[in-house]
Computed example of a mutant assay.
Amino acid sequence: MKLSDLSCGANGIVTEMSALPSATRKKLMVMGLLPNTEVTVIRVAPLGDPLQVRVRGVDIALRKQIAANIEVETR
């Protein structure tokens, strides 16, 4: 399942980020978004872009295009 497909309040475990460009993937990894890390969708903007996700206690805003390239496994 894609991170962009999760609904508000849903949790997931990041499984794969290989579809992202390497520069974007590295920036997200520095912010704590790593494989096998739990993420929670906090809210989605009214027009659907961006998404607010919580990773390791920190909230990050992600564009829907980026979130669509992050694979998660739901709990």
Rank of each mutant, 00 (worst) to 15 (best):
V39I: 13
R56D: 05
E38Q: 14
V44K: 09
M17L: 14
R54C: 13
G12C: 00
N11G: 05
L20Q: 12
A67W: 05
I13K: 09
P35F: 02
A67N: 04
R25Q: 12
G48V: 07
I13N: 03
A23V: 14
N69V: 01
P21V: 06
L3W: 03
G12F: 00
E38S: 12
V39Y: 03
V53E: 04
L47V: 11
L6I: 05
D5H: 14
P50F: 06
P46E: 11
K26P: 01
V53K: 04
S7L: 12
G9T: 08
T15H: 06
K26A: 15
V39H: 04
A61D: 13
R54Q: 14
A10W: 07
D49P: 05
T74Y: 06
S7I: 04
I60T: 06
L34N: 12
G48C: 07
Q65C: 07
G32Q: 10
V14Q: 00
L34Y: 02
S7G: 14
I13Q: 09
A10V: 07
P35G: 04
I66W: 00
V14P: 01
R56K: 15
P35M: 06
M29Q: 15
K27M: 12
Q52M: 08
R54S: 15
P21Q: 11
P35W: 09
L28I: 07
V53A: 04
A68F: 01
L3S: 01
N36C: 07
R56S: 11
S22Y: 05
L20S: 12
S18H: 10
L28A: 08
R75T: 10
A23K: 14
T24A: 11
I70L: 07
V72E: 00
A45T: 05
K26Q: 12
D5N: 11
R56A: 11
L51P: 02
L33W: 01
S22C: 12
M17S: 07
M1P: 09
D49A: 08
N11E: 10
M31V: 06
V55T: 11
L62G: 08
Q52W: 08
V55H: 03
C8L: 02
V55Y: 06
D59G: 05
K27W: 09
V55S: 03
G57D: 06
G48R: 07
A19H: 09
I70E: 02
K2N: 14
M31F: 11
V55E: 05
L47W: 03
P46M: 07
L51F: 09
M29A: 13
G48N: 10
E16C: 13
A67R: 00
V39P: 00
G12S: 06
P21M: 03
A45F: 12
K26H: 08
V53R: 05
E73H: 08
V14H: 04
Q52A: 13
T74C: 11
T24H: 08
V44N: 00
R56H: 09
R75I: 10
R63D: 14
K64I: 09
I13V: 14
E38G: 03
T24Q: 14
Q65K: 12
E16N: 15
S22E: 15
E38A: 14
T74L: 10
G57K: 04
C8K: 08
V14D: 00
S7F: 05
G12H: 00
D59F: 02
L51N: 05
A19L: 15
A68P: 01
I70A: 01
P35S: 05
I60E: 03
C8R: 14
M29V: 07
I70R: 01
C8W: 03
T37L: 02
